[in-house]
Design a protein around this nucleic acid. Structure first.
Length: 593
RNA sequence: GGGCGUGUAGCACAGCUGGAUAAUGCGUUGGCCUCCUAAGCCGAAGAUCCCGGGUUCAAAUCCUGGCACGUCCGCCA
């Protein structure tokens, strides 16, 4: 609780001086209390024991007595060698009532500094529909974008389009050289695809891609196919406009289909940058020339070139190849050119990458440093597995995002229809869409990115406990009560702007817990943003919602047509915080559900 | 074989820049709707924090050695 720390630190400095502690090392020992019942900030007194020649219990006791009181400080107690300080709930309440709690805006309308953060995420090869595994990148990346905006940063969300290389070449080749019946027969007429996605290019064209992959292994003329694809790949890497154009017409509809899926999850990008840009404009060629002059540069027998990053701390295989024997560039080389360009666009770079890219990211980072540039920050995430094992399109062991979202909506609709029998069918579907997509997002956001994650339908579609609908429900309740106030003729604007609001001297536990949660809300947002750990904020929103529900139980806002102004103001603050936090996580803040 | 990551109640997951009685949800279980949305609230039971050693006043957290799982170790992307 940082707002409490600013008050407590000077007082604690004095108190510690009075018992003989002069230096300020203790400041980093003053931490949020682990035992929430005990306090908001705690100072373990064990390290002072040796210095003062006294028992930690005694020291804690002495500090407690020497600590000057202040309006911010509620209880101070000394327990088992800890000095525990609890904020005065009335003091927190006064801060809330005075509007001193930052609400924020995840849509980016409240940027409070001029730095711009460029967050690159997703950047999936445009060769097929998103499955749940690939979507973890998009959901985490978009959440990071939103949280930065909520925090007050200017953000640019960027998609790096892989518009050259083998994967798109295969897709382009297939679309130009294979008929539908060929594709169908190669895939054994197995159309397990959901017919609902007929006409959606990512689902349609991926069949050509898959069929081509089989053709490359099975067909009699497979060598000819390979030669042709190889020719296209190399032409693209040399910036051949005609080939690049044919690639684009192959992948663009696929990419559009993928983006449609993401849009349903509230995910949007500000800019798209094509990989070929840096080949065409000569950056890649110049970069390779520059590499050749570096002291860690090396050349293989066939003329391929590399940098030996072993000298820069890379372990394992230390040769980082940036140029093939035939002189063409490699993916990582282009990625470095891309990063140099990105640094010209922004002060802070963040990439969201799967754990399989760790080595490559390390190589790019070290090379950028070798060139005198900074390495980007990276948020890595572990892969999503299915209970049956690794997700694999080839083996058909895959859950498509489009199907998941449909299923989520259908199951949510069943729940809504049962819980709210009086709602119209249209209303039910609207709520179901919001609850379903939010649930899917939240399910992925709330776990730590570096934790392996097993996708289970029953968990993704759980609509209670620690889920998005739980949060949405708390928020909807806060909206409902406000609406009720308006409906009973109360001028809520007047209540909100009224200066003197009495703060009750007695507070029920639900209210106190809500105030404490509000008081740490922005601390946790900051930590989640700086540490790139969105799940921390997801957790906070869960706590805030739980606290709101307890407050709602304990504190009547509307009683016999009379509004309790204090409770109403607290409720409205919580409502605003829940709303912006939900937007920050990409959940849809319905006002009624 | 080497690098990196993960291992915490039946299940899932938080805590990991050392600090108290290891938090939360599901599941199990007991209560609460004549009272602002019960998708809710309140209570109970449930944990050798993967294993062994070490550092420390203090280890789930740091070091070290194992084990298990994931991932990478392409002149692929």
């Amino acid at each position: 609780m940082e707002i409490l720390r600013t008050v407590v630190e000077p007082l604690l400095t004095e108190a510690l001086k009075s018992i003989g502690v002069q230096n300020a090392h203790w400041k980093k020992m003053l931490v949020p209390s682990r035992e929430r019942d005990q306090g908001d900030l705690s100072l373990p007194c064990f390290p002072f024991a040796k210095q003062l020649g006294q028992a930690p219990d005694t020291i804690a006791e002495k500090i407690a007595q020497a600590l000057q009181s202040a309006p911010a400080i509620g209880e101070v107690n000394a327990v088992a060698g800890y000095l525990n300080i609890k904020a005065n709930p009335q003091w927190i309440a006064s801060k809330v009532i005075d509007g001193q709690i930052r609400i924020g805006d995840a849509r980016g309308n409240l940027s409070s500094n001029d730095r711009e953060v460029l967050i690159e995420h997703t950047s999936a090869n445009p060769n097929g529909p998103f499955h749940v595994g690939r979507a973890r990148n998009a959901i985490l990346g978009d959440t990071l974008v939103r949280l930065h905006r909520l925090y007050g940063n200017k953000v640019r969300a960027e998609y790096y389009v892989d518009d050259m290389g083998k994967q798109v070449a295969v897709l382009a080749w297939a679309l130009e050289n294979m008929t539908k019946s060929e594709v169908d027969s190669l895939l054994n007429n197995d159309d397990s695809n959901n017919p609902q996605w007929a006409g959606k290019a990512d689902h349609e064209r991926v069949r050509w891609y898959q069929a081509a992959q089989l053709a490359r292994q099975e067909r009699d003329d497979k060598q000819a196919i390979e030669d042709e694809i190889s020719r296209m790949v190399h032409a693209s890497e040399n910036g051949d406009q005609q080939v690049l154009q044919s690639f684009e017409s192959a992948y663009q509809p696929v990419l559009d289909g993928m983006l449609t899926t993401l849009e349903r999850l509230g995910i949007k990008f500000d800019t798209f940058t094509k990989e070929s840009k840096f080949v065409i404009n000569g950056d890649v060629a110049r970069l390779m020339e520059q590499f050749a002059g570096l002291e860690i540069h090396g050349t293989a027998d066939n003329g391929a070139q590399f940098l030996d990053l072993g000298a820069r701390g890379l372990k394992g295989k230390t040769e980082f190849f940036f140029r093939r024997g035939d002189g063409s560039s490699l993916y990582a080389t282009r990625d470095i050119a891309y990063h140099i360009w990105k640094w010209s666009q922004s002060d802070q770079l963040i990439n969201v990458l799967g754990e399989d890219h760790k080595l490559q990211a390390k190589q790019v980072g070290l090379t950028l440093k070798e060139l005198g540039q900074k390495a980007p920050q990276v948020m890595f995430y572990s892969f999503i597995k299915l209970p049956e094992g690794k997700m694999s399109t080839r083996k058909g062991n895959v859950v498509f995002m489009d199907d998941l979202l449909e299923e989520a909506k259908a199951q949510a609709a069943a729940v809504v229809a049962e819980l709210r029998p009086d709602y119209s069918a249209e209303q039910v579907l609207e709520i179901a869409e919001a609850a379903g997509t939010s649930a899917v997002r939240f399910n992925i956001i709330k776990v730590s990115p570096d934790k392996g994650f097993t996708f289970r339908w029953e968990e993704a579609l759980a609509f209670e406990g620690g889920s998005a609908p739980f949060v949405m429900y708390s928020h909807a309740r806060s909206c409902s009560i406000a609406k009720k106030c308006i409906d009973s003729g109360i001028d809520i604007d007047a209540v909100m702007s009224q200066d003197a609001i009495d703060i009750p001297s007695e507070m029920p536990v639900g209210l106190v817990e809500l105030l404490r949660s509000i008081a740490v809300h922005n601390d946790i947002l900051e930590k989640a943003v700086i540490d790139r750990r969105p799940h921390l904020f997801a957790n906070q929103l869960l706590h805030l919602s739980t606290a709101f529900n307890s407050f709602y139980r304990d504190c009547m806002i509307l009683n016999d047509g009379e509004v309790n102004k204090f409770n109403f103001r607290i409720s409205q603050t919580a409502r605003a915080l829940m709303r912006t936090a939900m937007e920050g996580l990409g959940l849809i803040p319905l006002e009624k559900m």
